[in-house]
Design a protein around this nucleic acid. Sequence first.
DNA 1: ATATCAAGATAGTGCAACTATCCTGAGCGC
DNA 2: GCGCTCAGGATAGTTGCACTATCTTGATAT
Lengths: 226, 226
Amino acid sequence: MRLSELSAVSGISPASIKFYLRSGLLEPGQAVHPTRAEYGDAHVRRLRLIQGLRSVIGLGLEDIRRIIEASDGAETSGHKRLALLATVQSVVLGFSNSGTREPPTVKELVLQMGWPDEDSEARAAVGEHLAAMTAAGVAADPAVLVLYARAADAIADAQLTVTDGQRSVEELILTAAVGMHLHNQLILKVIALAQASRSIQRYAQQGPHTQKGRDGDASQPFDESD
Amino acid sequence: MRLSELSAVSGISPASIKFYLRSGLLEPGQAVHPTRAEYGDAHVRRLRLIQGLRSVIGLGLEDIRRIIEASDGAETSGHKRLALLATVQSVVLGFSNSGTREPPTVKELVLQMGWPDEDSEARAAVGEHLAAMTAAGVAADPAVLVLYARAADAIADAQLTVTDGQRSVEELILTAAVGMHLHNQLILKVIALAQASRSIQRYAQQGPHTQKGRDGDASQPFDESD
DNA sequence: ATATCAAGATAGTGCAACTATCCTGAGCGC
DNA sequence: GCGCTCAGGATAGTTGCACTATCTTGATAT
């Protein structure tokens, strides 16, 4: 198909497609003439990947390119997919690995969860982040960490099962990244809900709160609009 | 103090301060003359808040303004702080509330967690997000949701205790937002670690995996520096 | 009285992600 | 065969955001 058709199929403007071509995010397509190139299904998938990573996760084109580069030749074996997933994680989460040494909490966590006690970028990232949080004065409670890990473990397995069934690398990446992102957002919102719930429980005694009349305290008619 | 001193104290360039003034993020300060204005401690705090929300969480100025607007007059009582925290959540997490009706899972979760069965933006957001995930084909398992909720519950309480002790509204917001953000990042990284761990366990049998989850790709010599 | 410095306004910068325009050259009709 | 039109490729412009630099005006100090 031609660029214009590719545009029609993918829903991305020809101008943007050209832009992606220029940026090296999309391969040039089989050039049948100096002025005519043929695009295939791989291009459609690639565009979908780019679009998905941008719109859903909000990745920049630079990050997307890194993922795409890592995806080259990863169709084949399971362990190559593994490597690819690691890269996706690394890019999506912005791993830096600035060489902090791992807090003991991490090893404890790994052992407690029955995870293989191996180095990985993700593990280093967890260690670093814990250190950073401690440094920022918002140290994470190890008990909370275990709760996180249990939740994480549950979704990790589910995610892997889903990603296992993907046909193309593009779908693999998209499923992994989008799934990760959506779960993350979900957790955040659950935390928000937990905080809201806890707040209500805490402040119900102190001040009147409007909605459901959990307490009959009507001493001060506060305006709670924001 | 003058603008220049405010700049010196806060470490933000006079130009940026002016920009914030124009944007309405910072109040104009007591104008003693048409050409001289007096800034106070509140301005310093406000600037710190803006800076923190931008640099740590990466919020846009528009979002920051929404938070700031919500913070006006929230110094006083506990339940106003509650409302403020809700706004902070709403902005940081980008709540939209487009009117999806809540999946039954949410009420079950709330009951199971012993949270007050009340409406809130956070609750609506959870409901919507679950619906969205289902729609996207990555439905969240209720069992997983409970795991999330347990983790969320644990940190919510801790977070609230921390935020309770804050002196100024600005510190309150910053603590809440930064804490939330850091926990978010932590969870993501733990998920990444879980996935990496699970992957290793899965693929260890199928293919050779090399220490770091990567191997030298023989087919194409692409540069894998990151 | 004027030099100077601060406050306010206006316009410019840099980056990211497009988007619009132009140019060239191929295929097709006449 | 010749030009018209349209696709592909390159170049430059646009938009949005967050500043940043400059310019103007007017008050305070000398």
